[in-house]
Design a protein around this nucleic acid. Structure first.
Length: 221
DNA sequence: GACCAGGCACATC
DNA sequence: GATGTGCATGGT
């Protein structure tokens, strides 16, 4: 039932947009950094910050762990909330060095839900950031929920507006085949659709999901 | 100038 | 547990 609806949505989006090739990043570390920097921030601003980090040659766990927080903040300035995010990156690195000797290698062997919980223990890594890291840096099956994801399924009245993050994650995970490739592409397609057609004030004209039932008058969505 | 962007922690009730 | 607020740059 709901499985078919979610599968239909996926097909409509994929047929329109094609593969999104997420996550945009060359290494696991770069994906983790990007996941933290993109919190409530446009990706183009994150790209500027990552370029600065590459030019300064500190886009590695060891180098970023050693740089002063104030210096790091200055480099990531274009990403916004730069003081907060510099602290969050440092929190992650301090934890990584204390618990895992500064290496991401062991993460591959950690069971998905446990890895997610461990990441959530780092101050500054919340649900979406943790799921993004688990799925996109380590290829483990968790469904990433973000503001676009929520807005789209709520506008299409597939779920109640009050649904919280964990419920939304379960909604997708339990109604789709357990496939890392699918979860990867699905979330990326929802973000693509959200950017182009499902922004707060945007109407649905031209949206691949336009012909599906929807209600854009839902308060706040 | 207003609005928005691939959130999160924290205070307060 | 729910709700409100600060954090900040850059594009439209």
């Amino acid at each position: 039932m709901m499985q078919e609806t979610l599968t239909e949505i996926y097909e409509l989006l994929f047929n329109r947009f094609g593969p999104q090739n997420w996550w945009p990043g060359e290494t696991q570390f770069e994906i983790i950094v990007g996941a933290i920097l993109t919190q409530n921030t446009n990706w183009s601003n994150v790209e500027k910050a990552i370029t600065n980090l590459k030019n300064a040659d500190i886009l590695s766990a060891k180098a970023m762990h050693n740089i002063e927080t104030a210096k790091l903040a200055e480099l990531i300035r274009p990403a916004g909330y730069y003081n907060i995010k510099a602290g969050r990156l440092k929190n992650f690195l301090n934890w990584l060095f204390e618990e895992y000797d500064g290496s991401l290698a062991e993460f591959e062997n950690i069971e998905t839900e446990r890895l997610r919980r461990e990441l959530l223990s780092v101050k500054g890594i919340g649900r979406e950031t943790a799921d993004s890291i688990v799925l996109y840096a380590f290829g483990k099956e968790t469904f990433v929920v973000d503001s676009y994801t929520a807005r789209i399924v709520i506008r299409h009245e597939l779920i109640e507006p009050e649904t919280d993050y964990e419920q939304l994650r379960y909604f997708f995970q339990s109604n789709l085949p357990q496939s890392e490739e699918l979860f990867n592409e699905y979330h990326a397609l929802l973000v693509r659709t959200g950017k182009e057609f499902c922004r707060p004030k945007a109407r649905c004209a031209g949206c691949p999901l336009e012909r599906l039932p929807h209600n854009i008058e839902i308060e706040h969505y």
